[in-house]
């Protein structure tokens, strides 16, 4: 009887090794019978082992405002540690889709949904879900930098304070660490008590990124994060996103097709409330399956 090893949870696949990369996970190799200690070792090597490969999944997600259907039946998975670009013309529903993932639409008048969104296998609308904790885990960066009207330092730690992750002197450490992470430390270390609105637009956006990262999210939603920035800042932010990706799962709405192509692993193309096509970025841009996608990525519609 004891010879059969317990079967690991079927859905709990993770890519072997450290990379959360682009590989599609196939399943956890069963630990060999008689060597039960291998699990902690593998867990230490890859903390994501045993967690679902897709951090966020949507199943038949349909979104409506009052009687108007914005998006219909979206089935999609967002793999851990990848960057997914959401492209499509204005009004195609991609922003609505993005804002649904951390439930920012819930309070909008007339918002209704069908289907489900799961975070680590659990519905984000499940009864008993802590909305604040959900938003800690699924952070967001907006189109226009929106620092709060408080000092630069207080901005970085605003979320940390709200979630009581750290306090007192620890906050200074958090502030420095996160500002270093986004490469803003050298520029602002002498004026941590200044108003954030003295910073340039690009720096303000980096400050907002530091603020979003400070609460330790698993997923970061970015709604056209560089559309109000100059090309140099844009390039910098893109490089930063690429660095963040293995540890974070990023979902980026962008109108900049070149940007989608440069930074993302996978691309979703929305058109007129439908998810027309999704796949690896190279494939969507080089060999689109759908003629509409082809016309959009080659600049003939949109």
């Amino acid at each position: 009887m004891a010879t059969e090893p317990p079967v690991a949870g079927a859905a709990s696949g993770a890519a072997p090794g450290l990379s959360g990369g682009k590989h599609v996970a196939t399943g956890t190799p069963s630990p060999a019978a008689g060597i039960p200690r291998v699990d902690p070792v593998l867990d230490a090597l890859d903390p994501d082992r045993g967690r679902p490969a897709n951090v966020v999944e949507t199943h038949g997600l349909t979104l409506r405002f009052l009687d108007k259907t914005i998006l219909s039946s979206i089935d999609m998975g967002f793999e851990r540690g990848t960057i997914t670009a959401l492209i499509g013309p204005t009004g195609s529903g991609k922003s609505t889709f993005l804002r649904t993932l951390n439930r920012m639409n819930d309070k909008v008048t007339g918002f209704r949904y069908e289907g489900s969104v799961t975070l680590e296998g659990r519905s984000i609308w499940a009864p008993g879900t802590d909305l604040l904790e959900l938003r800690r885990r699924v952070g967001m960066l907006f189109q226009r930098p929106n620092p709060f009207p408080m000092s630069i330092r207080d901005n970085v730690v605003a979320g940390v304070r709200a979630h009581r992750i750290a306090k007192g002197r620890q906050l200074d450490v958090v502030a420095e660490q996160r500002l270093r992470e986004v490469g803003l430390w050298d520029a602002v270390q002498d004026r941590l008590n200044d108003s954030p609105f003295r910073l340039s637009g690009g720096q303000q956006q980096l400050l907002c990124l530091a603020r979003a990262l400070a609460v330790g999210p698993d997923v970061l939603l970015l709604d056209e994060p560089t559309s109000s920035l100059d090309p140099i800042s844009t390039e910098y932010v893109e490089a930063l996103l690429a660095q963040l990706a293995p540890a974070l799962t990023l979902i980026v709405v962008t109108h900049n097709l070149a940007q989608a192509r440069r930074v993302s692993h996978r691309t979703m193309f929305f058109y007129d409330g439908r998810l027309v096509e999704h796949g690896p970025t190279d494939q969507v841009f080089e060999h689109p399956r759908d003629p509409q996608t082809e016309r959009y990525v080659t600049g003939r519609i949109g």
Binding site: N102, F142, F148, A162, C208
Partner: peptide
């Protein structure tokens, strides 16, 4: 500005907390 409220909301601040602090 709505941007402040949205920013606070997206960080996972409770409504009362963001009202007081932001």
């Amino acid at each position: 500005p709505t941007a402040y409220r949205e920013g606070a909301e997206a960080l996972g601040m409770a409504t009362g907390y963001s009202l007081r602090k932001v």
